[in-house]
C-alpha cells in the first residue's frame, strides 16, 4: 500500500534551562494510506512530540516528514487542510455552543457554508449531541466534550486524522463510541494515527503499532507479529518487554 506519511531520521532536541533533551531520536517509519496506525510508549517516550512534528505544529531539529507528499517543514500550509487533529487536551471554547465550536473550525478550514451546515447536523447526530447543539460546551461532560472534539477535527473531511490519547479518562461506553467513530472514519478511507496508553485498544483496532521508548522507535509491526516476536500473549506484555518495568516521570 502507498505511504501517506514518510518519517525519515526524525530528531527533536529541546533546550530546557540550558539542558538539551532529545525527545525524538532518529526515528524513521511509514504510515500507509487508509491504515489505523498506533504509537504506544511510556510517558516521555516522544509520542506527542512526534505527533506535533507530523501535524506541523513544531519543526524537527533534523530529519524529514512527508505528509501526502508534502514536506512538513516547508509546506505546512498544504498539509494542515488535509489533516484533522484531536489533541490530548480537549480544546473547545467553553463560552461557545457546540454548534459555534464546529462552525469556528469549519470556517478556519474554509468549508463552504452549506456543506458545513449539513456536516454539522450529520456529525452532531452521529455522536448523539444533536439535542445539545446550542448549549455552551463549558457545561458538557468529559465524554460529550471528547465526542465534540472528535467531530470538530473532521468537519473539513480530512484525509488523515491524528488522535492524541483519545480515550484517556473516559468511561467504557464513551471509549467504545469513540472507537466506533474511528472505525467508521477508517472505512470511509481516512488514515487514522493515534497514541494511547490502553494496550487493548491498540491490539484490537490497529493495523500496525509503533512502540516508542525514550525517543527511539523500539518496534513497528502488526499487533500479532509483535506478540509473536516477543513470545507474548498480549500487547501489554510486548510493551513491558520492549520498554521495561521502570516507572517513568
Amino acid at each position: 500500500m502507498e505511504s501517506i506519511i514518510e518519517v525519515r531520521n526524525l530528531t527533536k532536541v529541546f533546550n530546557s534551562r540550558g539542558r538539551k533533551i532529545t525527545a525524538v531520536n532518529d526515528v524513521s517509519f511509514d504510515v500507509s494510506n487508509g491504515e489505523i496506525f498506533s504509537m504506544i510508549g511510556p510517558n516521555g517516550a516522544g509520542k506527542s512530540t512526534a505527533f506535533a512534528m507530523m501535524t506541523t505544529l513544531i519543526k524537527p531539529t533534523s530529519g524529514s516528514i512527508k505528509v501526502a507528499g508534502f514536506d512538513a517543514e516547508n509546506e505546512d500550509d498544504r498539509i494542515r487542510p488535509i489533516i484533522g487533529i484531536v489533541p490530548q487536551k480537549l480544546s473547545l471554547y467553553p463560552d461557545l455552543t457546540a454548534r459555534e465550536n464546529l462552525e469556528l473550525m469549519g470556517n478556519l478550514y474554509d468549508v463552504p457554508k452549506k456543506v458545513m451546515e449539513e456536516r454539522i447536523e450529520y456529525y452532531l447526530k452521529l455522536v448523539n449531541l444533536e439535542t445539545h447543539a446550542d448549549r455552551f460546551t463549558g457545561g458538557f461532560s468529559g465524554g460529550m466534550k471528547q465526542r465534540l472534539s472528535v467531530i470538530s477535527a473532521v468537519i473539513h473531511d480530512p484525509q488523515i486524522i491524528f488522535w492524541d490519547e483519545p480515550t484517556t479518562g473516559l468511561d467504557p461506553q464513551t471509549r467504545q463510541a469513540i472507537w466506533k467513530l474511528g472505525r467508521k472514519f477508517n472505512t470511509e478511507g481516512k488514515t487514522l494515527i493515534f497514541t494511547t496508553h490502553y494496550m487493548d485498544e491498540a491490539d484490537k483496532l490497529c493495523d500496525r503499532v509503533a512502540v516508542m521508548n525514550a525517543g527511539k522507535l523500539m518496534a513497528l509491526d502488526t499487533p500479532e507479529n509483535l506478540k509473536k516476536a516477543s513470545n507474548s500473549t498480549s500487547l501489554e506484555e510486548v510493551f513491558i518487554h520492549l520498554t521495561g518495568e521502570e516507572i517513568r516521570d
Binding site: 505544529l57 487542510p81 478556519l108
Partner: peptide, 9 residues
C-alpha cells in the same frame, strides 16, 4: 484552544 487554532490552516 490557542494551540488547536494554530493547528488549523
Amino acid at each position: 484552544t490557542l494551540v488547536r487554532i494554530m493547528m488549523t490552516p
